[in-house]
């Protein structure tokens, strides 16, 4: 492991763990991640018995050099962006652990589980109320958005 930065070491460990114990319905593109450890794509299946049953999604994780002290940048990418009150049509996700409540003790695994849980608890498929305004004005990096989290039990 000589020559690897702490951040690279950590990402390697995470990749191995994600392949060994993937969150339900998730498969990480290992070849791509091994070529570039800083960008991962995770294929995700909508869970059975939820509003997203049978749908396919892609999640992208981007890691900065300060990972895990800084949170990863996580967005939905590809053709199908889930229609959900916390997911903008450009793929940005409003989830507090991706910004304010990120902790270095969290992991790709825990982010995946939160996203699964977020989709699974959805009762009505709709976009966030400010979607059209947001996607016109936001920064490409969702971490630069000042999110207003509020518990609306969605």
């Amino acid at each position: 492991m000589a020559g690897k930065t702490p951040s690279e070491k950590r990402l390697h460990k995470e990749l191995i763990s994600l392949v060994k114990e993937p969150p339900p319905g998730m498969v990480v593109d290992v070849d791509q991640a091994e070529q570039n450890l800083n960008v991962w794509t995770i294929n995700m299946q909508g869970a059975e018995g939820t509003l997203y049953d049978g749908e396919q999604f892609q999640l992208q994780f981007k890691f900065g050099t300060s990972y895990p002290f800084e949170s990863p940048e996580v967005t939905f990418v590809g053709q199908n962006i889930p229609v959900h009150p916390h997911v903008y049509s450009n793929g940005h996700i409003c989830l507090s652990i991706l910004t304010d409540d990120w902790s270095p003790a969290l992991s790709v695994q825990s982010v995946c589980l939160s996203i699964i849980s977020m989709l699974s608890s959805c009762k009505e498929k709709k976009r966030p109320p400010d979607n059209s305004f947001y996607i016109k004005t936001c920064n490409k990096n969702p971490k630069k958005t000042k999110w207003w989290y509020h518990d609306d039990k969605v």
Partner: peptide
């Protein structure tokens, strides 16, 4: 799992 992702909605006005 409902505890660490309350979430959603930005304040639409004044994003810039």
């Amino acid at each position: 799992m409902d505890n660490n992702h309350e979430t959603t909605a930005t304040k639409p006005e004044g994003l810039e």
